[in-house]
Simulated scan of single mutants.
Amino acid sequence: MKLYKLLCFSFLIAVLTSCTFTENITINDNGTGNFAVDMDGSALMEMAGDQIGNQMGADAKKDIDSTFTFKQLFADKKDSIAKMSPEAQQEIKKLENFVVHTKMSAEKKQFLMTFTTDFKNVNELQDILQTASTLQKLEGGAAAASPMGSGFGNNNSKLSYTYDGKKFIRKATIDQQKLKEVKKDSAAAMSKMMFASSNYVIKYHFPKKIKKVSNPNALFSDDRKSITIQYTFTDYMENPDKLNFEVEFEK
C-alpha cells in the first residue's frame, strides 16, 4: 500500500508538470504483437523530488523497480470490483493481462511507468485506452497504479486499430454528445491547464517496409519499418481525431 500511496502522490504531481506519454505498438509477421503506453515523468523528479521526499519520508528515498499485473491488483480489489456494474466489471476484465512496470529514483531524477500487454490481433485493442480509464472507479488508489489514472485515456472518443498486411489504420471517432458535456464541465478547463505542456508520442513498428503515411509529420526509421509522430497532449485529449492516420506498406 505504501507503493500505491507513493505512486498516487507522484502521478498527481506528474500531471502538473511536463510529461511525455508514448503509445507503442509492435506488430509481428503473423499479426501478433505488443501494445504499451509509457509515461516519462522525469521532469517531476527534477522539479519536485524534494517535495516527494518530504511527503513520503524514507520510502521516497528508496529506488523503486516494481512490476505487477492487473490480475494481481484486481484480486486485491475484488470487494471494490464487486460493487461495480456488470458492464464495468466486464470492461475491467479486459485489462487482466496488462502489466505495470514502474521505475523511480530520486537520486537519478527518474520516474518511468509502463502499461503493457501482448495481443494476438491488433483488433483486440479496440478502445483499450477508454477501457483503462475505468480504473478510476476502483477504490484505494488503484487508478494511480497505471498511467491511465486521473482520467487519462478518456478523451471522449472510440479508438480502433486495423491491420491487414497491406494497410494499418488508427482511427478515433469523437462522441459528440460527450464532447458537448465536457465543454460545459469546469473541470475540463483544469484538465487542459494540467496537461498543456505535455506531449503524446506515437511509435509504431511493423514487419513490412512502409510506402507512405497519411500524416506528413511522421518520421521514419532507417529501415522504413517504424514511424514516430509527436502531438501535444492537448490534441490527444481535445482533438483525438487529429491522431488519425493510415499507413500503407510496400508489396
Rank of each mutant, 00 (worst) to 15 (best):
K5C: 07
F9G: 10
F11H: 08
L16Q: 14
F21A: 05
T22M: 01
E23W: 10
N24F: 15
T26P: 00
D29T: 04
L44G: 01
E46V: 10
A48G: 09
G49A: 07
D50S: 09
Q51L: 15
M56E: 08
M56C: 14
K62F: 05
T67D: 11
F68K: 13
D76A: 15
D76S: 08
I81V: 04
K94Y: 03
V100Q: 08
K103L: 04
E107W: 14
Q110H: 07
T114W: 00
F115H: 08
T117P: 00
E124D: 14
I128S: 06
Q130H: 15
Q130C: 12
Q136P: 00
K137Y: 12
L138T: 00
G140E: 02
A142Q: 03
A142F: 04
A145Y: 04
P147Q: 01
G151P: 01
N154L: 04
S157W: 02
K158C: 05
D164Q: 06
G165Q: 01
K166V: 07
K167A: 11
F168S: 07
R170P: 04
K171Q: 13
A172R: 09
A172E: 10
K180V: 12
E181Y: 07
K184I: 09
D185S: 03
A187R: 10
A187W: 02
M193Y: 15
S197G: 15
S197P: 00
S198R: 03
Y200P: 01
I202H: 14
K203W: 04
Y204R: 12
Y204F: 15
F206C: 02
F206T: 05
K209T: 10
K212Y: 07
N215R: 02
P216Y: 01
P216H: 02
A218H: 01
F220D: 07
S221E: 01
D222Y: 13
T228N: 03
T232Y: 06
D235L: 00
Y236D: 07
M237E: 08
